[in-house]
Computed example of a mutant assay.
Amino acid sequence: MKWSEITILTTNEAVEPISNILHETGASGLVIEDPLDLEQFEGEGFGEVVELDPDDYPEEGVRIKAYLPVNSFLGETVDEIKQAINQLLLYDIDLGKNQVTISEVHEEEWATAWKKYYKPVKISNRITITPTWEDYKPVSTDELIIELDPGMAFGTGTHPTTVLSIQGLEAYVQPGDKVIDVGCGSGVLSIASVKLGAESVQAFDLDDIAVKSTTLNAKLNHAHEKVTVKQNNLLDGIEEQADVIVSNILAEIIVRFVAEAYHNLRPGGYFITAGIIQNKKQSVHDQLTEAGFDIISTSEMEDWVSIVARKPE
Score class of each variant (00 low, 15 high):
Ala309Gln: 12
Leu90Ile: 12
Val244Gln: 09
Thr130Gln: 06
Leu88Val: 07
Leu235Val: 06
Leu74Pro: 07
Asp243Gly: 05
Glu108Trp: 12
Gln87Ala: 14
Lys195Gln: 11
Lys281Ile: 00
Ile6Gly: 03
Ile254His: 11
Val229Leu: 11
Glu109Tyr: 13
Ser186Gly: 13
Thr215Met: 08
Phe73Lys: 15
Ile295Arg: 11
Glu290Arg: 13
Thr101Met: 09
Gly29Ala: 12
Val50His: 12
Leu235His: 03
Leu74Trp: 06
Gly45Ala: 08
Trp114Pro: 01
Asp94Tyr: 12
Ile307Lys: 06
Thr156Asp: 11
Asp208Pro: 13
Ile32Arg: 01
Ser297Met: 05
Gln83Leu: 14
Val284Gln: 02
Ser283Asp: 13
Gln231Phe: 01
Ile21Pro: 10
Thr7Asn: 03
Thr10Gly: 04
Thr25Glu: 15
Phe204Arg: 04
Gly275Glu: 06
Gly155Leu: 06
Ala153Gly: 03
Ala223Cys: 15
Thr112Met: 02
Val211Gly: 11
Asp286Lys: 14
Thr214His: 00
Pro138Ile: 07
Ala274Phe: 00
Ser200Val: 01
Glu199Met: 11
Lys226Asp: 10
Val255Met: 05
Ala113Asp: 13
Val62Cys: 09
Leu95Glu: 10
Ser19Trp: 00
Glu13Asn: 04
Asn71Ser: 15
Met1Leu: 03
Gly268Gln: 12
Asn264Gln: 14
Gln40Phe: 02
Leu38Ser: 02
Val284Arg: 02
Thr128Pro: 11
Gly151Pro: 04
Ile307Met: 10
Thr158Gln: 10
Tyr67Lys: 02
Val62Lys: 08
Val305Gln: 06
Ile307Ser: 06
Glu80Ala: 13
Ala113Glu: 12
Glu44Ser: 13
Thr161Cys: 07
Asp135Trp: 06
Asp79Asn: 14
Val201Trp: 05
Glu252Leu: 08
Glu252Lys: 14
Ile123Gln: 07
Pro35Cys: 05
Ala66Arg: 01
Gly185Lys: 05
Leu144Lys: 15
Phe271Gly: 08
Val211His: 12
Leu36Thr: 09
Asp34Trp: 05
Asp177His: 15
Thr158Leu: 04
Thr215Gln: 14
Ser103Lys: 15
Val246Glu: 01
Ser193Gln: 07
Leu22Pro: 02
Lys137Asp: 06
Ser72Val: 11
Glu104Val: 14
Lys137Leu: 15
Pro69Phe: 09
Gln40Thr: 02
Lys97Val: 05
Asn248Val: 00
Asp37Leu: 07
Val50Asp: 09
Thr214Lys: 01
Glu44Val: 01
Pro267Tyr: 05
Ile93Cys: 04
Asn125Pro: 00
His285Cys: 02
Ser283Met: 13
Gly45Cys: 08
Ile295Tyr: 12
Val258Leu: 09
Gly197Lys: 07
Ala309His: 08
Val244Lys: 08
Thr156Tyr: 00
Ala259Phe: 04
Gly43Pro: 09
Tyr136Gln: 04
Gly168Thr: 02
Ile296Leu: 10
Glu170Leu: 10
Gly47Glu: 02
Ile64Glu: 10
Asp55Thr: 14
Glu147Ile: 00
Gly269Tyr: 09
Lys230Trp: 02
Thr161Asp: 11
Thr7Val: 01
Glu48Gly: 11
Gly96Leu: 05
Phe154Glu: 08
Glu147Cys: 04
Ile191Leu: 08
Pro175Gly: 06
Ala111Tyr: 04
Leu148Glu: 03
Glu147Lys: 15
Phe271Met: 13
Ile238Gly: 06
Gly61Lys: 09
